[in-house]
């Protein structure tokens, strides 16, 4: 049997049935770099990202029997990854749930043009300043291209709650992003004014 031709779900089923490492190794080869990069974007430290990847794959093996084929394997693995990274990098400040009703039915928010306007380097800086929960939901939507339904399944919350969290995360990101842009704008203006006043 050529394991390379098997789907992720078939590999999982074979691994549970036979317990042969061959199937796990194939899954690992397919996803280890992806998982490692996601960890890297949370911790920015190679050694820590390696430890996180190790722990995530161990978690995966130990919980493989609880995997249900209702979700794609990759979605399930990424949700383990995000949850693990959030737990490890969580700040003591709790996610503020006050003020907005998550059951409120929001319209699909597809203002992708606004996201496309963000400059990558500034965006990277802004992402470091928001909560890991907010960062992960934005990454699920815009980096992994998961649908609202897939995000809701992997986070085990309602679709309207996903939309609400996405909206809040985007607002926060936009605020932090603009603060960063404004900060550098002011600095450049100051330096320019000093330079020209000396002439």
């Amino acid at each position: 049997m050529n394991v390379k031709k098997l789907t992720d779900e078939q590999l999982v089923a074979h691994f549970i049935e036979t317990q042969k490492n061959l199937y796990f190794e194939q899954l690992y080869d397919r996803y280890s770099d992806k998982v490692y990069r996601k960890c890297l974007s949370f911790v920015k430290d190679d050694a820590k990202a390696e430890d996180f990847t190790h722990d995530i794959f161990m978690k995966l093996v130990l919980n493989l029997s609880s995997y249900k084929e209702t979700a794609k394997f990759s979605t399930w693995l990424y949700s383990i990854t995000y949850n693990y990274c959030i737990d490890q990098t969580r700040v003591s400040k709790k996610y503020s749930e006050v003020g907005l009703d998550e059951n409120y039915d929001l319209a699909d928010d597809d203002d992708d043009a606004e996201i496309a306007e963000l400059e990558a380097q500034q965006l990277n800086k802004a992402l470091k300043q928001i909560l890991p929960e907010e960062k992960s939901i934005l990454m699920m939507k815009y980096q992994d291209d998961l649908s609202i339904k897939e995000i809701s399944d992997s986070l085990d919350i309602s679709e309207s709650a996903v939309k609400m969290r996405l909206l809040r995360a985007k607002e926060k990101l936009r605020k932090v992003y603009l603060e960063g842009v404004l900060f550098w704008g002011v600095i450049i203006a100051k330096v320019a004014s000093l330079f020209f006043s000396q002439d």
């Binding site: 490492n21 796990f24 990069r37 161990m58 934005l138």
Partner: peptide, 29 residues
């Protein structure tokens, strides 16, 4: 949104997981 316009895709790190991790995991399993 095309991938080359999506800043979230552009900021994705391009590191590779070290080779030894696979061996360590398999032996732990």
């Amino acid at each position: 949104m095309p991938d080359n316009e999506n800043p979230f895709k552009l900021i994705e790190p391009n590191g590779q997981v070290p080779e030894n991790l696979k061996k360590a995991l398999v032996s732990e399993i």
